[in-house]
Design a protein around this nucleic acid. Structure first.
Lengths: 342, 342
DNA sequence: ACAGAAATTTTACCCCCGTAAATTTTCGCT
DNA sequence: AGCGAAAATTTACGGGGGTAAAATTTCTGT
């Protein structure tokens, strides 16, 4: 290693013997400098481990290289997975994704939005809390930053990308009806628009098939869905509160809790003989494959949602257009994932 | 709303009629300005929603308000949960936590380290990949940034905070031996020092109790532990590869997969009569409570690890000391979590 | 070899705010 | 009311690098 530590681009450029702006150009696009210059810079880079100050970089750029990603609850493996995929897409495209979580609380969502706004990101991928969101704060944010909303269709941003609950729910309702007792629908207090849509879709699907919809609502709140499924679902099981032996849960996490509750009570879950209960979910949560029995569910098309969200945002950013007024909604169909729980 | 949009602190200060540095003082510590001034600023804040540019803020500060948090795999609920707790602690202390994930890959860990370094964070909380880490890159990072390492004890940073595998593993081994057939130990390719320590602790504990240690190694790699447990654990089950009907897994995720594999084969897991297999894990993963049967495991003391890591880092940062050379290691004991899988 | 065009590199200015030093205001006390 | 110290505010400067415009170099074609 050479003498003193290189701390600034100025020093770095001086050490090479070229001007700082040329080095700056290199970092923004290595191909924009002559090959001989590029080689000199890269050789020096090997030696000094110099890294531009990210604050200084973004401070005077008309568009930062930063993309904000906000989810309601990062500890939920569903969102963790979405974020993981989005993050890589952004990095590959040369952006710096900044991950933020609302931790299920409105004031933290608002704080996260404020943090994001102060980052002046080129664009943002937002999965709002939904019901608990501060709509005005979201609107204000989306007015300043090109925004694609995913998962939870809150009416802000340029585009929404998500799942088509009115396709996925009827599909699994249909399956459940054709293979056994028509399902009742277990939900908790709806935390976001998806929850409401799924319930409504369930009711429509049942009516269309000529069955009586039965919605079972448990009053848990918060984001510990499995716990709610276990506790309140368990109470329902004990008290005979479920009007059907087939239970379609509003999401997989609730179903995971319910399966655990059934196990506690010695109720065998599954579609085979000797089973007391069929349980199905929605989302194809990363761990649904590993429940016992494995959970029958309907998958959200993670990949498509992520790809489309990111691609839409990049288009938005590149074109510089803000399709004022005509917000678009892109919905992907789910796939039936048949496993043995229902 | 007033006329034009306020974009900079300069404009904001002008709109109020005070100087910018006073506003700057306010943002750094509201109590540092006179009450009358504070009230004026806060009234204007209500009206304008001005938010200082985070890049400019940190650009000229001797110590940024930023704390870097790096984990090997953010989609792992264990890390997601740790990060969640750390994040809140940092926010409460007035810091801006930046979450980064290595996504299980060395080059991404290195990129994340580079990103973090360019953020010039006040301090960093690092859970290295472990075996896949680039030790030199970690060292270089820790030389520049006060660093607390957690979970995976790679020899860098000022302090390590983690679990005491040599307490936790013997505890569960002891329990398993006293209540049934002595366990074999199922591991995969060790991804980090914990994995090795757990195996060694298992061997020591078994020998101390006068039993023959039996380590079963499956050759899966990557971070999809449940899948490995399901597939390779399943193969072992089918081929009679487990030398004991009690299986202690290196971690809960592996155990979750193994339980699913047992279910597939009609093997009942648990300690009751009629059960073919006992399965135990390690970590008390957020979802271990909800497996069927619920997983017997030993908990890592999440809260203590998080609190101690963050507190240690803050001490380090405030004191400005770098305890060169005398790296400390703080280990927390696990607790036996008795559920019905073993 | 040379004029002119194209590609690179430099020059010069600016971004938005932190911070130390200088100035002003406030406030307690005689 | 007046004085001096303490608190608050303002002045002045700088941080690390982006970027448009100017200057230079390199490349064409003849």
């Amino acid at each position: 290693m050479s003498g003193r530590e290189i701390r600034t681009m100025e020093e770095f450029a001086e050490a090479i013997g070229i001007s700082r702006p040329t080095v700056s150009k290199y970092f923004n696009d290595p191909a924009s400098v002559r090959k001989t210059t590029r080689d000199r810079i890269e050789a020096a880079l090997e030696e000094h481990h110099y890294q531009p100050n990210i604050f200084a970089i973004n401070q005077n750029r008309k568009a930062t290289k930063c993309i904000g990603i906000l989810v309601p609850y990062l500890s939920d493996p569903f969102f963790a997975e979405m974020v993981r995929l989005m993050e890589r897409r952004c990095i590959d495209a040369g952006f710096w994704p900044v991950i933020l979580s609302a931790h299920g609380e409105q004031h933290l969502e608002n704080e996260a939005l404020a943090t994001m706004r102060s980052l002046r990101p080129t664009g943002a991928l937002l999965a709002p809390l939904g019901r608990a969101s501060d709509l005005k704060a979201l609107e204000r944010f989306a007015r300043n930053v090109p925004t694609v909303v995913f998962d939870s269709n809150v009416p802000v941003g340029e585009t929404f990308v998500g799942s088509n609950n009115f396709q996925s729910i009827p599909m699994i309702v249909d399956y459940l009806c054709r293979t056994g007792e028509p399902p009742c629908f277990m939900e908790m207090q709806p935390v976001n628009p998806n929850a409401n849509k799924r319930r409504d879709a369930y009711i429509m699907a049942m009516e269309k098939l000529g069955y009586d919809p039965q919605v079972v609502r448990v009053e848990g709140s918060g984001w510990e869905f499995e716990q709610i499924g276990l506790e309140l679902g368990g109470e329902m099981l004990s008290s005979g509160g479920f009007p059907s032996s087939t239970i379609l849960c509003s999401n997989d996490r609730l179903a995971i809790g319910l399966i655990a509750a059934a196990f506690e009570r010695g109720l065998r879950v599954g579609h085979g003989q000797g089973c007391a209960l069929r349980v199905a979910g929605h989302d194809d949560h990363p761990l649904s494959r590993f429940t016992t029995p494995p959970l029958t569910t309907v998958s959200q098309d993670y990949m498509s949602i992520v790809n489309k969200s990111v691609a839409t945002l990049f288009d938005l950013v590149e074109s510089g257009e803000r399709n004022q007024g005509n917000r678009t909604e892109i919905l992907f169909d789910g796939k039936l994932i048949l496993r043995s729980s229902a």
